[in-house]
Simulated scan of single mutants.
Amino acid sequence: MSEIVAQTVDRCRAAGLRRTKALEELITTLIESQRPMTLGELATSPRMRDQCDKATVFRLLQRLAEKGIARRLGLHERAAYFTLLIPGRHADYLICTECGSIESVKAPCPVHELEDEIRRKTGFKNLYHELEFFGTCPACA
């Protein structure tokens, strides 16, 4: 088990979630993915399809999101995408308002300096931010 998977499983246990093979496989799948994944993609992924059904994957994702370990992205009327929130790792996203596709922003994040200033001025700990940009992707334009 990779170090990031082990750390994430430890965060899950500290948050009160039971360590199961399905949970470990879901975490591994999300970590190995180069982008956020939909419920359908996760449920039919090679690691998950023999572990549990789609409803179980959904319940696991809901629990991870409730505990702040995963994040739901995307438009509410479109398929939601899920990604893990890993301490020290950060991504901002572009979301198409037409087809609902999602991709990481491949540009430096302009908010890190602001985040540092807010942390210094307010004394907040564990401060983080999330950015989602909405527009029409080239395929839909």
Rank of each mutant, 00 (worst) to 15 (best):
P46I: 02
R59G: 04
P36I: 06
T136P: 06
L94E: 13
H90I: 08
Y81G: 01
T38A: 01
I86L: 06
I31R: 01
V57P: 00
T28N: 03
G40R: 04
A6H: 07
P108K: 14
T97M: 11
S33T: 04
Q34L: 14
I69T: 02
D116T: 11
T83D: 15
R119K: 13
L64V: 07
D92A: 14
R119V: 09
A65R: 07
S104V: 11
I95P: 01
L30S: 01
L73Q: 06
R119M: 06
I31Q: 02
E66Y: 13
K21D: 08
R120Y: 10
S104W: 08
E103S: 10
G123Y: 03
L42A: 00
A14C: 11
G135I: 03
E66V: 10
A55W: 09
A22W: 01
A141H: 11
A14I: 08
A91H: 11
R35S: 14
L60H: 07
K54H: 12
A65V: 15
K67W: 06
L114Y: 15
L26Q: 00
L64F: 08
I27S: 00
S104Q: 13
I4C: 05
F82T: 01
F133A: 15
F134S: 07
L84E: 01
Q34R: 10
E132A: 13
L73K: 10
L131V: 14
R35I: 05
K67D: 03
L23H: 02
L114S: 14
G88P: 04
Y93V: 05
D53T: 08
L39C: 06
G68C: 04
G68S: 09
I118H: 05
E117Y: 09
G123N: 07
D50A: 13
H90M: 11
A141G: 10
E130I: 15
K125A: 08
Q34C: 11
R119W: 03
K121E: 13
V57L: 03
V105L: 15
L131F: 11
E132H: 15
R119Y: 06
E103F: 12
I31M: 03
S104G: 08
F134G: 09
L64Q: 07
R72S: 09
G100K: 05
G16E: 10
C12V: 05
G88K: 02
P87T: 05
Q34V: 07
L94S: 09
N126D: 04
L60V: 06
I95C: 11
E117N: 13
L61P: 00
F133I: 14
F58L: 14
E24T: 00
V5H: 01
E32H: 10
L23A: 03
G123T: 04
R11G: 01
G40K: 05
C137S: 08
E103T: 08
L73W: 07
R63E: 14
R19D: 09
A79G: 11
G88A: 07
L61W: 01
Q51C: 07
A70I: 04
E115Q: 12
I4V: 13
